[in-house]
Design a protein around this nucleic acid. Structure first.
Lengths: 317, 317
DNA sequence: TGGCGCATATTGATTTTATCAATGGATGAG
DNA sequence: CTCATCCATTGATAAAATCAATATGCGCCA
């Protein structure tokens, strides 16, 4: 088994195409075909099913990919380590996030501290963002909700209050806030069921025994805003995500603590990876400057609760 | 950075010698020298300090070695996976143990189930055995004591009663057992302070408020036996380690539950590695046949206590 | 339905890297 | 002080990676 065989296999499996793998690796397509074929021949296994001009990973191929993801993440780590050690301090931090608004502060701080490092941000939904982290496609992820998982370390970073918004001609629009019980029977336009904003809000309503009427579920925040502006119902959003619009008004729910959280998540096994450590150091600095948040290893909150007031977080030099 | 460079670096770092690394990799010594040198040159780093004809890892080299250990463990896993998948089912399971007696049953069972797999056993002290596991030098370890560590999964496998032994002309020799309080003031010959047998015994004595007199500490079980046979004092040993000898008699401590435990330990991150899974499957089979032990993930006992009686252990098909 | 475009597979040639043999230099052990 | 052993250098060779050219086959579109 030669390294170039695994490398070609891995690139094809990731890209789903020999040609795309060749482009990624900067070699010609026959090179890739030959190497994957020789790997299959050497072990007498079938890693891909060829269907016309499409390919599909076999189960064996899927199992091997699980291993090669780690392998090539380790290889990248070795290169990053050597690059950083030599003082040129190059490297590429890959961040996954569920929304760009969650990461801008920390990326600004990170860039200020490490201008030599390249940062890429992939924005996706929670599921894909977590999967990318677990599959070594990203180095750090910023997620609103994380189920406890021994493979992960989740650091609460920010919390955002969930607010309700209404069209300006709605009776609520003149108010400074609303109470939970006023949501009873109200028509709501909300995000899909898996959204963390939706989950936090639904739970607060359940706990209060209040039953608003969900009349519409829309996956797009922009579409929700448009629907609310047209008077179809009230909207629910995280304060961080609320974009002021002259047609609508945002209102806090004054008798409930409804928050969503941003967690910075990384793989426990990679907590000593140089880029991950560098990012966590910057994060610790931000948290130390912000007493509202704390470093709590592997302790994501399952339900929205106010974090305890407390002292300095993070490691001190 | 080329794979062969990392491979050569890794072998030299592990072996402490370019020549030994060349032998291990089956290439000539200048090959190794050239590859390590080109890696150092490419990144402008120094991985080894050359001192005459000896070499020493630099700090940078040590950091890289931490990464390459994982990298090459992953590579081995990929090869093992492909070998197993192709049905020839070759592979090499590396087991670390603190004594050969701990592993013979499970290795016999493993070999019966997987005659095609090669097994090597490294016997060492607890510290080295654990270090080998953490450094990816072994796939599974059998240890008497494991501190809780999120990186590890420890499965209690066997327990052994700690016994006291005496020369045949000692008054105790005619007894079937002794009581804790009878140890007060007795001259003892024991293992070194870190030994788990010693620790379990000391704790039982402390809890009972009994103070035997340790007159000798010897790191070798054989030497302890000889010293006891000569009448210098009583010995303490795990029942599994006791070798009958006409000159000495073994006695249980009848009013105390003093045990040592064998734990099967593996890295959490490698719990899905094929060889590790194969071994754990065999272990689960042994445990299912033995109600005295249970699968308890990451729950080693800090102190000797009788495991709870219970139902079947292990996964069901 | 046929043609075109695109992706994989094959083949022989070329380039690049790995590796070698021979040897030099330096250190440590006896 | 000498010899053995280990690392470093150098020029040559072997092996692997890779290429260019092309064949084959499938899918899509008009």
């Amino acid at each position: 088994m030669r390294h170039t065989q695994l490398r070609s296999f891995h690139a094809v499996a990731q890209r789903g195409s020999f040609t795309a793998a060749a482009r990624e690796l900067g070699v010609s397509q026959p090179t890739i075909t030959t190497q994957v074929k020789s790997l299959e021949g050497e072990f007498g296994v079938e890693l891909f099913v060829r269907r016309g001009r499409r390919i599909e990973l076999t189960e064996t191929g899927g199992g091997l990919l699980d291993i090669t993801r780690r392998l090539f993440a380790d290889e990248k780590e070795a290169a990053d380590y050597l690059n950083e050690t030599r003082g040129l301090r190059t490297g590429h931090l890959r961040v996954g996030a569920v929304g760009p608004y969650h990461v801008t502060d920390m990326l600004a701080a990170f860039n200020a501290r490490h201008p030599e490092l390249y940062v890429s941000v992939t924005v996706g939904n929670s599921r894909d963002t977590l999967r990318d982290l677990l599959d070594y496609r990203t180095d750090v992820a910023v997620l609103a909700h994380v189920d406890p998982d021994p493979r992960l370390v989740a650091i609460p970073y920010q919390r955002h209050r969930v607010v309700v918004f209404c069209p300006v001609d709605h009776p609520f629009a003149r108010r400074r806030g609303i109470r939970v019980r006023e949501m009873e029977g109200q028509r709501l336009i909300v995000r899909e069921a898996g959204s963390t904003t939706r989950r936090a809000f639904d739970q607060a309503m359940r706990e209060a025994g209040t039953h608003p009427r969900v009349v519409m579920e829309i996956g797009s925040r922009e579409s929700i805003r448009e629907a609310v502006a047209k008077g179809i119902g009230l909207g629910v959003v995280s304060e961080a995500e609320f974009i002021p619009d002259p047609r609508i008004r945002a209102l806090p729910v004054i008798d409930a603590e409804i928050y969503t959280y941003a967690h910075v998540v990384h793989l426990r096994e990679r907590q000593n990876a140089r880029l991950v450590r560098a990012f966590l150091d910057v994060l610790a600095g931000l948290l130390a400057a912000s007493p509202a948040a704390r470093l709590v290893a592997n302790a994501p909150r399952d339900r929205p609760t106010a974090p305890r007031a407390g002292g300095r977080a993070g490691r001190r030099a």
